[in-house]
Design a binder for these strands. Sequence first.
DNA 1: CTGTTAGCGCCTTCAT
DNA 2: ATGAAGGCGCTAACAG
Lengths: 337, 337
Amino acid sequence: MSVTIRDVASRAGVSISTVSRVLNGTSPVREEKRQLVLEAADALGYSPNPAALSLLSKKTGGLGVLLPFVGGEFFSELLNGMDEAAQELGMFLLVSTSHRQPGEFRKAIAALDKRVDGLVVMAPELAREEAASLLRTKTPVVFLNTDARGLEADVFNFDNHAGAHALTEHLLRAGHERIALIAGPQDAHDARERLRGYTDAITAAGLSTDGLVYSGGFTREAGFSCAMEILEATPRPSAILAANDYCALGAISALHQAGVEIPDEIAVCGFDGLASAAYSVPPLTTARVPVQEIGYRAIRRLAARVDGNASDHEQQVVPVDLVIRGSSAPAPEAVEA
Amino acid sequence: MSVTIRDVASRAGVSISTVSRVLNGTSPVREEKRQLVLEAADALGYSPNPAALSLLSKKTGGLGVLLPFVGGEFFSELLNGMDEAAQELGMFLLVSTSHRQPGEFRKAIAALDKRVDGLVVMAPELAREEAASLLRTKTPVVFLNTDARGLEADVFNFDNHAGAHALTEHLLRAGHERIALIAGPQDAHDARERLRGYTDAITAAGLSTDGLVYSGGFTREAGFSCAMEILEATPRPSAILAANDYCALGAISALHQAGVEIPDEIAVCGFDGLASAAYSVPPLTTARVPVQEIGYRAIRRLAARVDGNASDHEQQVVPVDLVIRGSSAPAPEAVEA
DNA sequence: CTGTTAGCGCCTTCAT
DNA sequence: ATGAAGGCGCTAACAG
């Protein structure tokens, strides 16, 4: 049994209300008793029971984070930024995953609800209606990289379209005319947007995407096997735009194994701007997303909404940076970190 | 205001205890009322308030995870395994970081305590006495990769010594006589153990480590800059054992940039067995640690202890696997995933 | 079987 | 300025 406010009260020889008043500074208490209480609390190592507090205040001090899955540097960085914000706010993070399964998604939400004051939800594969239905609970929600625009919620989405568009244009400018896309899972909003960005750029250049779009995924494995396929194609593409950095890294590994020179024979671009991308061989051209910063801002925003300090809904499309490195440039001179 | 047990009771026309009994199956209730209650609960979308439960039961359903920091694939995989276990158990994870700072460490513990039923603590830089002092609270603790052997707690440590020893021997067997070590932060238990493993192997071979130990770190940046230093050394080492995979990947990047052939001119080994290591160019020889599995087991173990189902304290040194790939072998044939 | 009651730890009126 | 009492939502005796 843990030490309660009653223990402190009896040790200090006062009532529990006095203890409460001293500890919370709710109303003035004679200095003499004040000291007594403070000493008693300190001696006993008292700290209030969060459950009791939460029962009264209807607040938990917790923020829920629901991710499609935890894995890879992307989520690490995201959590990193979130944790930083949470620590500053004196709140804590309840992390859970949906494995991209609607069923698990709902279960996770149910489990999290009531244990947290708000939710950050990243669910690229979530249909807009489902996102909308989530909003019917009164729990504040901040969506990340989710198709939730126009909804009554805060939304931070990366500019997947612009990023893919810029990367494709970069390759076009370098003279590539057959640019393959290793596409991500098409049930995911971000993957669809990247495909759209790629397609728009190719089309605008008067070229066609016919036979150039490979059904891949966000993993190294997908990048590896798609790259193998691409090597068989005739005419063979001279450049690859991958679904993300991991996918690109998998492709690079395949090309290296096949003895294909990068970027001379085939150029490769990724997406996300992971730390890994700066240290690959050769260093990877990519579209850098400020992942950690977004994690940080999402939590700050959520906390503000929980406190009622957030008036309008912020719906932002976060710009991404084109980072050109050796995997797409003919003569890489140095690692650009 | 959320729907309470009282709302369900009045809707079903019964008392709140009946509702409680039906929902918890505590004691038999006439089928007729049972249905009424079930329907009412369902219609109202009732779910019990965790804070109230927790106030009664002294259990929160939460497990705290305290990490040195969140970043990189290692922690992703760890959390992945932990999340899997937590979901199976119907518990949730409260994640926090200490940034390897004793002050923040204590603060994080204080914040987590009482909100969780148990704690998984990974703190390689924690002195044994501090670990011991953590145990004085009644909260069950499972230590990960922490110097806590002999303490009254469950401990899962990776066999850092054996891993480093095996990697060094592998390099010695390949004929290397000047093997440089890029050492990790020496205030960290795991880094010290790896240094010891390396030193023991070198010494056992009748060689010396003089001038071969570089003060690096667990990051790509450290690996990169140490590799640059190593290239300047005379006589130049013919192999590098890095503090971990990220460090090794940084070193590989530096060597590549300097035009040094791997493994022909310099062989490189990492430690951890990250997914990245299998896809680097060339693929990285490393000591694979079952990170995800350890995360899973740590949580299961913690839950068992919380439930009182764990009698003795399990103190395990988890074996690591030597994974030999192209970065240390003369003729890599294929990526070994 | 089922309703009533007493807390779990705390804050907040309401008296004093 | 301070103590007593009520109640947050729920479960577990305790009476019926």
